[in-house]
């Protein structure tokens, strides 16, 4: 329990670093840290496979690409302004809304409905079986969506070169 609160606190702190730091490189590193700590939470929930995939895919690949782009574009540190922008206001509103939702959920939920975990929970076999039987359609649709996104990105990049 102490471990959970410790990790949760660290996760929140690094998530705040992502949003609040003025240097985009530090923000990206905060994001890596957040994702890594979420992976640690997954390990504590016996979902080792998900944790490792989280580290490999998000921390190991996606955020590295973020860093790559930030470094190539040479994004300057953001100048801090006293005024909160429109996007900032909208963001704050959503944070409040989400907090209320969480609070309601925490009050309403019935802990007696909790079930014992099935045997082998979080194992690769069980996850793969669920993913490729129950989740087959959404799995394939997601991969199609990603393919479309990749093709779209290539098309847009090509067009710019020609013009």
């Amino acid at each position: 329990m102490i471990a959970f609160y410790f990790i949760a606190l660290l996760t929140l702190a690094s998530a705040l670093l992502v949003v609040l730091h003025r240097n985009p490189i530090y923000s990206a590193l905060g994001l890596v840290n957040t994702l890594f700590l979420i992976a640690v939470s997954f390990v504590m929930l016996d979902a080792e496979l998900i944790a490792m995939l989280q580290v490999i895919v998000y921390a190991g690949a996606i955020v590295i690409l973020f860093l790559f782009v930030i470094m190539l574009l040479n994004v300057e540190s953001e100048v801090r302004s006293a005024r909160i922008s429109k996007i900032g206001t909208a963001g704050l509103a959503f944070v409040l809304l989400f907090a209320v939702e969480l609070a309601v959920f925490a009050l309403v939920r019935d802990p007696s409905g909790a079930q014992e975990l099935p045997a082998g929970f979080g194992s690769t076999e069980l996850l793969a079986e669920t993913l490729f039987s129950k989740g087959m359609l959404s799995f394939e649709l997601t991969s199609l969506l990603l393919l479309v996104a990749v093709v779209g990105a290539v098309v847009m990049a090509r067009r710019k070169v020609e013009s």
Binding site: V32, L49, M52, V55, I56, A59, G60, I64
Partner: peptide, 19 residues
Amino acid sequence: NVGLLFVLGMVSLGVYGVV
């Protein structure tokens, strides 16, 4: 039990030192 993925994940984190 996901040892192989653990190795891959940790090696992929090593890139951050370089970057």
